[in-house]
Write a protein that binds this DNA or RNA. Sequence first.
DNA 1: TCATGGGTGGAAGAATCTTCCAAAAACTCG
DNA 2: CGAGTTTTTGGAAGATTCTTCCACCCATGA
Lengths: 158, 158
Amino acid sequence: MEDSSTHDIDRIDRNILRLLQQDGRLTNAEIAERVNISPATCHRRIRRLFDGGHVMGVRGRINPQSIGLGTLVMVGVVLDRSTPDSFAAFEEAVTGMKELLDCHLVAGDFDYLLKIRVRDMADFNLLHSRMLIALPGVRQIRSFFVMKEVKDNAPLPL
Amino acid sequence: MEDSSTHDIDRIDRNILRLLQQDGRLTNAEIAERVNISPATCHRRIRRLFDGGHVMGVRGRINPQSIGLGTLVMVGVVLDRSTPDSFAAFEEAVTGMKELLDCHLVAGDFDYLLKIRVRDMADFNLLHSRMLIALPGVRQIRSFFVMKEVKDNAPLPL
DNA sequence: TCATGGGTGGAAGAATCTTCCAAAAACTCG
DNA sequence: CGAGTTTTTGGAAGATTCTTCCACCCATGA
């Protein structure tokens, strides 16, 4: 039994998910028409998709440039020790960073890979010196400035 | 003059952006009430934010588990040559990959950093052998399996 | 002082949401 | 099979919201 659902996702649900991912502001009436069911049924299915955790929310995608966060930096982090306590301490500290978009524990040359948005390089320098190297248990930090966002946060294939 | 806007974003606009990022399905009436302006004015401001490119769309966030994409892999790519043609060829080829969520040209030990969602490790192995190493101009590929998504696609700070 | 232009909110018809209920479909078990 | 049960469906309707028009307010500048 999946934790995120008790129901199967049939072809109609998939179509609804695809439409909602493309445009989260589509009206129930329009979705109903496009997937060929009645508005009442569509309304119910959409609510089930939300309640079942299949749709984790609907989010307006804010242009980073518009709020002065035009610079993207990827960061690889290596910790001193590979103990559960060490990981937990790092994760708790890093979670509070408002500039942090992604933080993933990975297998490979790094322990964590981060994705960070800042105003500019100067802003990142501040962040780097005041926050990143001060994170608990950090042995090494490697920063990758993004020069071109070929694809950022693409929709899932449906 | 910013290309994404001719208008300034004042405090009210910021609040609207924050609300829309938190929940893209808020009604105009509710947003208006929360930012203390009339529904008519709020409607106009929201439309201006969309038309000005400050909101790049509204997207339902589909649970990757629900559609069998529960495995996340970060990939670092190094190309053979650092020529514009080489970059262009790689980017065009990689853009078509439906499993690709992010693709960023970076400065550092890698040329590109990718973020890829697949069903499981076996699925990634297929993708790796059939698509990634077949991409044009690839010298080296380093894969980082994500063991824990501490933070994924967090909202921008507003 | 007066004209101008951008921003504001009231008002109202049109569209949509949300829920209830009865009918149809699917499923279960004797 | 077939009756009973559960699930799913769609029509209907009041409540809510959208969308637009228009008059008003208030800075700015001649």
